[in-house]
Amino acid sequence: MDVGNILVWIVWFAAAFACLGSGIAVVTFANPFYSALALIGNLASLAVLYLLLSAEFVAAAQVLVYAGAVMVMFLFVIGYLGGRADAPWAGGPSWQQVAAICAAGALLVEIVVAVGLKAGDRLDDEATIGASFGSPQEIGRLFLTNNLLAFEITSIVLLVAAVGGVILGAHSRRFDREVARR
């Protein structure tokens, strides 16, 4: 048991707990602002886990795109809307919430069981990887050769989303007058 390994384990545990903890925080906070901040923490801990899995580029992209752009947008919108509080468990658990917990719990149990049983011994062997596994070079090469179609389609999806965002945010003069009247 060498020091590197122990270090890795410690980092892993820290990241995992941070991840799960922040996840629970997102779901349970009443104030959406706090939920968004917790999500940023979640994203950061996930990035650490990605690094442990030799996915350097993905980790960087996660921090830059997700935490840097998407979450910022979230925070803008939350700021614009105002932090409306809604307590999740207010008024006692309704049948909907109970059912939700049961369903989610069931799913979790199944996955854990499946994974724990090593999916019928299929999760035994691990592949050995080279040094450039997960490097930007490698990812870039794959994007532009094997997965070119996915690359292009993703760009179209982003374009559509941008257009949609603009349309959704556009002011309609007639509508604004109507709203002002109300």
């Binding site: 614009y80 809307l81 989303a161 945010g169």
Partner: peptide
Amino acid sequence: MAVAASEVVVGLGLIV
């Protein structure tokens, strides 16, 4: 990740 970003754009647009 890219798709999630797009989806967030549209979702937030809707909420706004």
